[in-house]
Simulated assay, not measured.
Amino acid sequence: MKMPFPGAAIALTLTLAGCGGSPETSDPTTNGEAPAGHAAEGVVTLSPDRIAAAGIQIARPTTGGVGVIDLPATIEGDPQGMQIVSAALSGRVVALVRNLGESVQRGQTLAVIESREAAQLKGEVEASRARFALARSNLAREQRLFAERVSPEQDLIAARTAATEARIAYDQARSQVSAAGSGAGSLNRIGIVAPIAGQVIARPVTLGQTVAADAELFRVASLGQLSLSLNLQPADAGRVRPGTAVTVTAPGRQGTARVRFVSPALDPQTRLVPTIATLPNRDGAWRVGEAVTAAVQIAGDASGAVRVPTTAIQTVDGRPVVFVRTGTGFLATPVTLGEAAGDGVIVRTGLSGRERIATTGSFTLKAELGKGDASHED
């Protein structure tokens, strides 16, 4: 049977023989027992000082049902908190009341447009108001005459119908003006108002410009809550649910978002799963369009899988190994890998999760192991 690490086995035997020890020297963190299934080959003998000097970092694998994926993400405006303010009528912009970055309240005037259509709408309001006032006066007269038995009931019914129709026409005319904007004082002017409270984030119109109906004048956003857009691998998307926590990181800032939506369909271009999270922004720390890093918590499998950083994995003799800390150094332990997730990977077999492993600097240990093999081959 071929031994996977013959040179290292000889080196271990010679090292222990010179010290009067035994090849079964174990990691004191495992109560004096060598890891199950580990043979004497694949050992790198290093003192604590040399481990520190080499920058090798040691930690335990992650076990249990939760892992983390680090992904690039983009901050977007909340679709429910962003509104495009357009001109309902064509005309000329004669006033711009709010500038970029300024806060506005719902119903507050943003701009004033001078328009012939506005004059027609407001003229219809005044005319319908006058007709309604006349109809009410006629109705009051007919009610009085009917009560005095002077006028027949038919005339009263006709007056009541006319008053109702006049009121409907008046309400309709006012609604048309309200849909176009506010009064703005003058007969031929209409005020464009903010549909929501928020902040002006875009203003493509300029003073004096003639605009068409439905032209965008402002864009108002309520920035107290934003959206986080990211894309998941299909294998990871199945382990992310609405409500899952997402840690959002940018230079000098960190926040927590919650997953709101995981698409049931892949994006046809990227073949990834679009995902949206909600990010609180009451203090205004985040900006729309900003690129950030999102750490998404994903559920693991029911068996409590062991997860290690990808930096802990090295390939020796064509097999993936993890360097497990022992009393005298490290033991290259063959492992069977599962799926990768962000900067980690599942270890199916080879580790129990209680070991201490080299998470950073494992390539240095692989190089040391190679030196031992080369010296014995010479």
Rank of each mutant, 00 (worst) to 15 (best):
V205D: 09
V205T: 14
V211L: 08
V211Y: 01
A213S: 15
E216G: 06
E216V: 14
F218C: 08
F218H: 07
A221C: 09
A221R: 06
L223P: 00
L226N: 02
S227Q: 11
S229K: 13
A235L: 10
D236T: 09
G238P: 00
G238N: 15
P242I: 12
G243A: 11
A245E: 12
V246I: 12
V248H: 03
V248L: 03
A250R: 03
P251A: 13
G252D: 08
G252Y: 07
G252N: 07
R253M: 10
R253D: 10
R253K: 14
Q254G: 15
Q254F: 01
G255Y: 04
G255K: 03
G255N: 06
G255R: 05
A257G: 05
R258H: 11
R258D: 02
R260Y: 03
P264H: 07
L266K: 07
L272P: 07
T275W: 01
I276W: 01
I276E: 05
A277P: 01
N281P: 10
D283M: 08
D283A: 11
G284Q: 06
A285G: 12
A285P: 02
A285K: 12
W286I: 08
G289W: 12
A291S: 14
T293V: 14
T293H: 09
A294Y: 03
A294Q: 04
V296F: 03
Q297S: 11
A299E: 10
A299I: 13
G300S: 12
G300F: 05
D301E: 14
A302E: 15
S303C: 06
G304S: 14
V306M: 11
